[in-house]
Design a protein around this nucleic acid. Sequence first.
RNA 1: CGGGACGUAGCGCAGUCCGGUUAGCGCACCUGCUUUGGGAGCAGGAGGUCCCCGGUUCGAAUCCGGGCGUCCCGACCA
Length: 540
Amino acid sequence: MRLPSRGPRTLKKPQIPSRVALLDALGRKEVSRVHAVREILHLLYTMADAITTRADDYSQWYIDIVRGAKLADYSPVRGCMIIRPNGYALWENMKAALDGMFKETGHENAYFPLFVPQSFLAREAEHVEGFAKECAVVTHSRLIDDGEGGLKPDPESEIGEPLVVRPTSETIIWNTYADWIQSWRDLPILINQWANVVRWEMRTRLFLRTMEFLWQEGHTAHATKQEAVEETLRMLDVYTTFAEDYMAMPVLRGVKTASERFPGAVDTYCIEALMQDGKALQAGTSHFLGQNFAKAFDCTFQNENNELEYVWATSWGVSTRLVGALIMTHSDDQGLVLPPRLAPTQVVIVPIHFNDEQRATVLEVARRIEQELADAGIRVELDASEAQRPGWKFNEYEVQGVPIRLAIGPRDVKNENVELARRDTREKEIVPQKGLTARITELLDRIQEGLYNRALQFRQERTTAVDSYDDFKAALDEPGGFVLAHWDGTAETEARIKEETKATIRCIPFTDQLRGLDEPGEDLLTGKPSEQRVVFARAY
RNA sequence: CGGGACGUAGCGCAGUCCGGUUAGCGCACCUGCUUUGGGAGCAGGAGGUCCCCGGUUCGAAUCCGGGCGUCCCGACCA
């Protein structure tokens, strides 16, 4: 049973069956029972107020979290979402951390156009094939009265060559790089852009799959293959560090198989995370593009030996999908759980008082603590609003995933204590005001580490190595998650396994992650030789 | 694209079968009082082109025709 949560929602909950449907199900003579059934359902739908549990319905739980924590709304545009301040603050914190790491590794930010001439997209054969089916295309520049009180594109205003709303920017960027690069002295070019992209998708899942999303895309140009490959792997390392140190989300690193590769890439590397429902989520990708785009856009340079060579390329990106990954890695049935390093608010203070006199003394202490924490660089918020009562606030901040909550009431003022509640374990304790800042600084670190360890343990419990197809199928259901198995390297086998089990090869992992399991073997299905195990999973 | 359901206040719904007071209920919202250590109580209040167009009728949320939109299942996609 799914129950609606508090507050306005545009989301349609499952609807109570109509009278007609119930009459069909129960029989035409059961009119009174039909009324009773609908009455009961109606009561259940309106009286209770909870986030759907993960065990009950995982995808509904996810939607309840996103909406309950006010991260995003559905929009009037099908397939698009509205990122609310809470969700955007998370993305901003991710951006800030990543942007710093990009700068540290020598990258600069720039901005390229939203619109890509249609002909650009057609230049690289695999690239077109990969993206052509999901492009939004602009063909007109003007609206006119349609004579029926509405508007329509002015047929007179049809623009010459249609413009594609960028699904990714390789083409327009390489068209530009071709102008910028003549000599080996112009290389490398290390550019990143923060942007939105549009991919015309059928299904929507907030943050995980929407038509428009926000991301960063790095595009680099190099003089040698080796340098480009090194860059590709360097950025994969940056993503790994970000995922593990900031998001507290362990990831597997590896390279994609040919069928999962980015259209136009020579090699696609990825980090893969495991969500709580046992499904894998690609959390970031880094592509070695070889000379494919350089050739498509005739981008050459003269090397030190006065020879003309094509430029070597990389591109790499992460998107607002990471917000979805964050949710599904840590959150519980009470709501969002955020790692302190990314939490927009790390500590919330809730004052409790029964009269004006108490209000004054409680707030005085609360403000002093707020100031001390802020001075220590902690993101702290004092909620002194009288619009809601303390109990309501407790719940609200729990749903929103604030890592630490402090409650201060008259009792605490008198005893020079505060009540400290941590979101990750839901433990509460009374602690002295003295030394509070140091305690909280240390606790935030411990929470960050604890979340990572919990997620890592979860992943380890759901990573299985198997050597037979029967075991493989069993492991996908129980315990689920990542299944390490041998594969003969052919697309045919990969496709057949996908067809039969819905599992795909998430990556061919770097072998340092396969401690003790890096022996060669034989393919599950065909028995043909395999150099190493690959990671299978059902995926988002 | 095929099959099914739905469209009434910000949200969730009742009322429609069988046409007839001023279209109701819960949540949310506004005002006041009492409250406040885990989603407060009471009282008062505001909020509606009943998806749109046309028809039948003395009278349409309700019946009829057409249109639009949304959701679910399948197909497709990842």
